[in-house]
């Protein structure tokens, strides 16, 4: 357990400069991921903690058809926002099915996007083999006990899961991440923000060291769209997803005019199910369509013995949420 320096810069540019110049510095926001990794698990060592919680990046503003969410907005604040309730109900559902009130009071939207995996091998420094912690060391999860692990985007080098609930509807909505670095600002769609493990599972997203998420821009659903989030887990509350699905449908005369679908609990990154959406778009809102979409969404999974059950569970999760959102009986 290392000692670290604590600093609290006054403005965003100062914070970005501070972290960009120091390879051993890290931003601290809600702390619900970082403090565990540094102080409890001993997995991350830091020389300097840059507390950004008082920077002016907190708050929600509504445009005509988007919601602009400051990166330091807490999960509870976002869940309580009237526009979220009205126009993004599945975002609210996903938020309130995650963590617990105390954690949601602390955890920020930017931090939720950047949360590290809950893979127990990653979080245990006594385990030698973890390509995410120590590139090239192997993966203890592939041969060990696995359950809360990924089956899509996974490979023998890493099956660590991205456990966010919030990010599942956000990738379905084509949310955009706004980023500030020393060289200026840029924006990246959340669907292009995450990086599949490949040969370097330690690289998880497109951020350069020191770049800071300042805002997330979330397109609102059409007024007549319906949406829902289904989370399947080992116990009824306070647990990460085994599988989850976020769906938004615009249905006209029994036909799906526009579908948005994304999966949680199964991916190394929050998974947008684009092929399934293509199949759903223009198809009748009936059970055969839903099952066909589920089959497409779970094509070519990578499973180990402990995660094989998730393939069928995820398909049923998709069918169930599409039934719920469309009102079609099973």
């Amino acid at each position: 357990m290392n000692a670290f320096e604590y600093v609290r810069p006054d403005d965003v540019a100062g914070a970005v400069t501070m972290v960009s110049r120091d390879p051993h510095a890290s931003y601290l926001a809600g702390g619900t991921t970082l403090l565990d990794l540094v102080l409890k698990d001993g997995v991350v060592e830091l020389g300097r903690v840059v507390d950004i919680t008082r920077l002016p990046l907190r708050g929600i503003s509504r445009g005509d058809d988007t919601l602009r969410v400051g990166a330091l907005t807490t999960m509870e604040e976002l869940a309580a926002d009237p526009t979220v309730t009205e126009r993004l109900p599945f975002v609210r559902e996903a938020l309130l099915l995650g963590a617990s009130p105390q954690l949601r009071n602390m955890a920020t939207v930017g931090g939720n996007i950047l949360q590290r995996t809950r893979c127990r091998y990653f979080r245990d420094p006594t385990v030698a083999a973890c390509n995410k912690r120590a590139p090239g060391s192997g993966c203890a999860a592939v041969t060990g006990v696995a359950r809360m692990h990924a089956i899509l985007g996974a490979r023998a080098a890493c099956i660590a899961l991205h456990a966010s609930d919030l990010c599942v509807p956000l990738v379905a909505l084509d949310a955009v991440v706004h980023i500030q670095g020393v060289g200026g600002k840029r924006s990246v769609p959340l669907t292009e923000f995450y990086v599949l493990p490949g040969d370097r599972p330690d690289i998880e997203n497109v951020l350069q060291h020191g770049e800071l998420i300042t805002e997330v821009e979330v397109p609102l659903l059409p007024v007549n769209a319906r949406s829902g989030y289904l989370k399947v887990r080992d116990r009824a509350s306070y647990e990460f997803a085994l599988t989850s699905a976020a769906a938004a449908l615009l249905i006209e005369d029994g036909t799906i005019a526009r579908a948005r679908l994304a999966l949680g609990g199964v991916g190394t990154i929050p998974r947008r199910a684009r092929e399934a959406e293509e199949l759903l778009n223009g198809a009748p809102a009936v059970n055969q369509t839903f099952r066909a979409a589920a089959e497409v969404a779970l094509r070519d999974p990578f499973t180990v013995s402990g995660t094989a059950f998730k393939v069928e569970l995820a398909k049923r999760t998709i069918v169930r949420i599409l039934q719920t959102v469309s009102g079609v009986q099973s």
Binding site: T32, L35, K40, S100, Q102, L103, M106
Partner: peptide, 22 residues
């Protein structure tokens, strides 16, 4: 480890886990 909630206090009017805050 931020699990059990025994350490919950109010900070600026909202509940937080005081074992997960510096």
């Amino acid at each position: 480890t931020s699990q059990c909630g025994a350490c919950t206090v109010m900070f600026n009017g909202e509940s937080v886990k005081s074992c997960t805050m510096l």
